[in-house]
Design a protein around this nucleic acid. Structure first.
Length: 508
RNA sequence: GGGGGUGUAGCUCAGUGGUAGAGCACCUGCCUUUUAAGCAGGGUGUCGAUGGUUCGAUCCCAUCCACCCUCACCA
């Protein structure tokens, strides 16, 4: 490794000695490569002189000429460079070019004997010398750890994965366009908070030196957006980076992105219609159709999505209707189902229903399905159902067996909300690190009166996974969280420092 | 946290209780329409780390580190 870098570094020094800057400032392009390929015949026929820039990915020497593949943002093209045409200086320059170097080329287009569309170079500029060798030219970079740790290298040699991230951006843009059209106001609320809330999760804690107070990275922006509804905004939303100090796996990264939106004077049915419409538009915008592949499945986003209550769905799968049962009756009924259930979790009627639902219904929800009317015990931020005892006005949307959104008719009774905070406070004192602390100012806001409001939160990372057919959150994040490398790794900077030291010695 | 797997050259990977291998990359030479260009020559390595067993360990054992899968946890 050191030897490979040293060879390239020596080329840099040789260039500098002969007055060539291996890291120049600017190169004016006339075309991107995709544009050249699109209008190839016309540009070739008119012998227009074009200028392109990109990274050298392949290089073939043929005596007094070279062929090379150059890639820019979107496309690759072959360049042809021969001594007669470019002169000895440029020929020698290109002879020293390594795979991974970035070059600028000027020339005209032609088609080779083998039928390859090619740029005949008349002038060559080295734009950046790469000191680090590129991964193998055809095996590429497959080591998943290296792909996450050095995403830039992954993006260089696996250009198809760039598509996933472009789609991610387009998905967010489509959502933003939709919400703008629906007259939702995009807002920004604090990420750094002196008090966290709005979800059950352990926060990341930090310290503000000047104020000498503890601060937290937000775990949700719910409580701030609701304050804005109190303040009189009708429809607000935020693209929010949230941070949760919890386990990591295929579906969880400590830093992730959600969208939360709140809509005054609306209830959870209004939210469901809005969400359905939003997904329909986004899916169509990205795929041009409503049917998309995900793993072995084909997901059909053609609305309306199925709407079924949690209790109905349980009855459908188990034949048992838990409606109106006492806690004891529910436990007995659960026992009769002969499922392998975690008994410790089933501490009340709502938990029994949820546990059975998770075991029997959740994995079967492949096509978009709204599960509605959750038990009140497991829905502390949702308003009680207007007609049904022990239930709340809440839904979650499931697609491909994964939760894709969570919505309520929001709880806006300050007395009720205070009680729930006090309960949470007890849990916090008892050692439940995920319990929510009392947010006095939020209670104050509710005391001023929050109109009836529907709210929705949905994870962007998971939506992107769904729409790009990816199965790990790390594949839709440019830079997923990784542990630092300690033993056994030799940082590139150490190699460069060694070479710098050797050069200093040599110059004496 | 439990279970399973992986870690060898810049990259992709073989392999062995006795001085470490291939392809590509890289270096030297030849080749002016090649294309995974070709031909001739050259191994550039902390075998993830630390201990142990052994005359001798990359290999066997222990501990640790990183990553992946899975279960548990998860408003």
């Amino acid at each position: 490794m050191t030897e490979l870098v040293r060879i390239r570094r020596n080329k840099v020094r040789e260039l500098q000695k002969s007055g060539i800057n291996p890291y120049p400032y600017r190169f004016v392009r006339t075309h991107h490569i995709d544009e050249l390929l699109r209008d190839f015949d016309a540009i070739a026929e008119s012998e227009t002189v074009v200028r392109l820039a990109g990274r050298v990915m392949l290089k073939r020497k043929m005596g007094k000429s070279f062929f090379a593949d150059v890639r820019d943002n979107l496309e690759r093209i072959q360049i042809y460079l021969k001594l007669d045409l470019v002169g000895q200086e440029a020929f020698d320059l290109f002879n020293g070019v390594d795979l991974g170097d970035i070059v600028g080329c000027e020339g005209t287009l032609f088609v080779t004997r083998m039928g390859e569309r090619t740029l005949k170079v008349t002038s060559l500029t080295l734009l950046t010398k790469a000191l680090h060798p590129l991964p193998d030219k055809h095996a590429g970079l497959t080591d998943i750890e290296m792909r996450y740790r050095r995403r830039y290298a992954d993006l260089i040699v696996n250009p198809e994965i760039r598509e996933t991230f472009v789609k991610r951006t387009r998905i967010i843009q489509a959502i933003r366009d939709f919400l703008n059209k629906e007259e939702f106001l995009e807002v920004e609320t604090p990420i750094l908070q002196s008090l966290y809330g709005g979800a059950a999760a352990r926060p990341f804690k930090t310290h503000h030196n000047t104020l000498d107070i503890s601060m937290y990275l937000r775990i949700a922006d719910e409580l701030y957006l609701k304050r804005l509804i109190v303040g009189g905004y009708d429809k607000v939303w935020e693209l929010c980076k949230d941070f949760r100090n919890e386990g990591m796996d295929r579906l969880h990264n400590p830093e992730f992105t959600m969208i939360e939106l709140y809509w005054a004077f609306a209830d959870y049915r209004d939210i469901a219609s809005l969400f359905e419409k939003l997904l329909r538009e986004v899916v169509h915008h990205i795929h041009g159709t409503y049917k998309i592949p995900y793993g072995d499945h084909e997901i059909d986003f053609e609305p309306p999505f199925r709407w079924i209550t949690m209790l109905e769905s349980v009855q459908e799968k188990t034949g048992v209707d838990f409606t109106g049962m006492s806690f004891k009756q529910a436990l007995e009924a659960a026992d009769g189902l002969k499922l392998d259930l975690d008994q410790d979790r089933m501490i009340n009627w709502g938990k029994v229903v949820e546990t059975i639902w998770e075991a029997t219904v959740e994995p079967t929800l492949i096509q978009p399905t709204f599960i509605a009317d959750f038990p009140v015990e497991i829905s502390p931020l949702a308003k009680k159902h207007r007609d049904k005892d022990n239930l709340t006005e809440r839904f979650e949307l499931f697609i491909a067996g994964q939760e894709m959104g969570n919505a309520f008719s929001e709880l806006n009774d300050p007395m009720d909300q205070l009680e729930r905070f006090l309960q949470q406070g007890k849990a916090l004192e008892a050692g439940d690190e995920e319990a929510q602390p009392l947010d006095d100012d939020f209670i104050t806001a509710l005391a001023y009166g929050m109109p009836p409001t529907g709210g929705l939160g949905f994870g962007i990372d998971r939506l992107v996974m769904l729409l790009t057919n990816q199965h790990s959150i790390r594949d839709v994040l440019f830079f997923p969280q990784m542990k630092d490398l300690k033993e056994g790794s030799v940082p590139v900077s150490k190699i460069l420092a060694q070479i710098a030291a050797d050069e200093a010695d040599g110059d004496k």
